[in-house]
């Protein structure tokens, strides 16, 4: 009786899973570019390998439960004298080793390949991504434009995202284009992505960053190359310029709508502190110039920049 209900339950679960499969084609399982595709292939391969383990264990488990459960026929059970079985133990150490090798090799290969451009023959485009409380800022250094909370990319062109953060860490994730990478304050990270067709994909922050973290969702619009160029030209012509003050206001905590700018101020976000203020280093009486000389110079420039900035603010 109990077994029968078990079979019914299994049947229903299978039915539910099968009917669910068609709706699974979104997010990670719906790769739309070469990076996501590589990861998808790896995921599917790991699922295949793990299914072998799963089925083997479950079959053994059910067999043991059915065969050796306490019943009236084995009431005279006497504990069998049993020795350790070396062969069995070697077997179930060896099988996991083989499976892990089968997973480790493609893992290492993919790890290294993701460091490189997904389409090395294509000229890539660079986009600087900055997460700030609680918004995404996208700078296009080659085009000199900036967008907020959405990003347009050319289809079939590898994109090299340069990731930074002002304030807390976030994680830049567009599941349909590929895996994520953290945005961290004070250091720059890189992520290659590419869309192999036009379309709109949802991205979001995957690392909790405080109050309005949930709303850090953005669209990635992949446009045909010519359309992308038209869009850039149009932005340059029509969108407003962004002043330093506007940029500093943008860094203040809050949620903003999508924005587009035809220029952006030259501020190194890696030199900003948790609240978006420049890191000022007070001069100490025993200050000296050591190996940090280059940094020092940069730092002075930034300070001057900011002094200048506060000046303009006063006016």
């Amino acid at each position: 009786m109990r077994l029968k209900t078990g079979y019914v339950a299994i049947f229903f679960t299978m039915a539910l899973l099968l009917s669910g499969c068609s709706s699974l084609k979104s997010g990670v399982l719906n790769p739309q570019g070469p990076v996501a595709q590589k990861q998808y292939d790896l995921i599917i391969w790991s699922i295949v390998l793990m299914s072998i383990v799963f089925i083997a264990v479950i079959v053994l488990f059910v067999y043991m439960l059915v065969k050796y459960r306490a019943k009236s026929t084995n009431e005279d059970y006497v504990e069998p004298e049993e020795k350790e079985n070396k062969w069995l133990e070697v077997l179930w150490t060896a099988i996991p080793v083989v499976i892990i090798i089968a997973l480790a090799i493609p893992t290492v290969k993919t790890t290294f390949s993701l460091e490189k451009s997904p389409s090395p023959n294509q000229k890539p485009i660079t986009i600087q991504v900055t997460s700030a409380n609680w918004k995404w800022i996208f700078k296009y250094p080659e085009q000199g434009i900036q967008t907020v909370n959405y990003v347009n990319i050319p289809a079939n062109v590898p994109v090299r995202f340069q990731l930074n953060a002002v304030g807390p860490m976030n994680s830049f994730w567009v599941p349909e284009l590929g895996g994520q990478e953290y945005t961290m304050p004070g250091m720059t990270m890189y992520l290659w992505l590419e869309a192999d067709k036009a379309g709109t994909f949802i991205g979001r922050s995957a690392n909790f960053s405080g109050k309005d973290f949930t709303h850090m969702q953005f669209n990635v619009n992949s446009l045909e190359k010519t359309k992308f160029e038209d869009w850039v030209a149009n932005v340059k012509k029509t969108a407003p310029k962004q002043t330093e003050k506007m940029f500093k206001d943008l860094l203040k905590p809050g949620v903003v709508k999508e924005q587009t700018y035809s220029s952006y101020p030259n501020i190194d976000v890696n030199r900003l502190d948790e609240n978006g203020n420049p890191i000022l280093e007070p001069q100490s009486p025993t200050h000296h110039h050591g190996n940090g000389g280059k940094e020092d110079n940069e730092h002075k420039e930034l300070e001057m920049d900011m002094n200048h900035n506060s000046h303009t603010n006063h006016k």
Partner: peptide, 24 residues
């Protein structure tokens, strides 16, 4: 069986490039 589910998904997560898609 439940720990098995946790275990095999753990192995899936251990693969770094796949983890880029699962993380958080």
């Amino acid at each position: 069986p439940v720990f098995l589910c946790g275990g095999i998904t753990g192995v899936m997560l251990s693969s770094a490039p796949a983890d880029y898609q699962y993380h958080n």
